[in-house]
Write a protein that binds this DNA or RNA. Sequence first.
DNA 1: AATGCGTGGCT
DNA 2: TAGCCAAGCAT
Length: 351
Amino acid sequence: MIFSNELINWYRINKRDLPWRNTTDAYLIWLSEIILQQTRVEQGMPYFLRFSEQYPTVKNFAAASEDDILRMWQGLGYYSRGRNMLKTAKVIEQSFNGIFPTAYADLIKLTGIGEYTAAAISSFSVNEAKAVVDGNVYRLLARYFGIDTPINTGKGKKQFQEIADELINPANAAEHNQAMIEFGALQCKPKNPNCEQCPFITSCFAYQHKKVNELPVKLKKLKIRERYFYFFLAIKEGQILIKRRGNEDIWAGLHDLPSIEFIEQTSLDQLFVDQNFQDWFSGDPIIHSVSDQIKHILTHQRIYARFVHIEHINPEFTQENGWFWVNIDDVSQFGQPKLIFEFLKNFFKLY
DNA sequence: AATGCGTGGCT
DNA sequence: TAGCCAAGCAT
């Protein structure tokens, strides 16, 4: 409890004033926590403000369409968060009478809510004594106690959760959890932590043993997948051809352009050879290069994209593929990956 | 248990 | 600059 009291003292002096900290509304806390998963505060903030304005209650959220949600989520990444939120909002409407649950045991059953988020909502809203363990807490605990168990293993997760559970202050779970997270974010940062002005400088194992830069330990790393896309711009009478992406791959459920993917670098000439364009066009195929290769780096993929303008596309073929025409002025109404809407924005001077 | 899922900032 | 990391979760 000494640790917790010291930590909370630090928190009261140093905490940021963030909008989701001025409420005990479980719905708004849920909204903020989902948005902030793997996402920096500065990046998530405008989305939180827009969503809380547009959907002030879980009832409003549940009444939205998936297209509405994906459009508002556009540019934030990890789009399944948005789809899962809609599913959960509907469950709360139907099974919880529209009252957002606050008990950890209820929350953990909902889609999109895992151990961290269930602990965050239950502690922040009603002070339930469940310890949050996120990236900040892993780092703080690994350094303070000198634990070198890799944080991304089952053993590590279990070990760190147990320590966090022992450390929590049951009388003030909300502030304790907030303080753990905020301390990791502001003081015990991944790079260049502010050890010189740290209240735990004398008791921190990592600082005393000069292992601050070695902790926490994380096993790595995944192979990067290289992908090469051609995206096609078919434009006719103020309209452009778009499609919805499937549910399997990256950017599931979002909209993009008709496209062809290669597993290796492929020239525009080679595209003609490799691709049987016979069904695509009703007249002579016309293809103009529009962009140079665009390199788009994701966490586990490197995407190389080229945009080409095509003419004389076959209307029947587009229909069979589920492609459809939309007014160019309306294209921003369809949720798209960053790569696509940035290109269209520049191409049409839209948005 | 291991993998897939976005985008952006930092070094 | 190429890699790491950010208020994780689902499968």
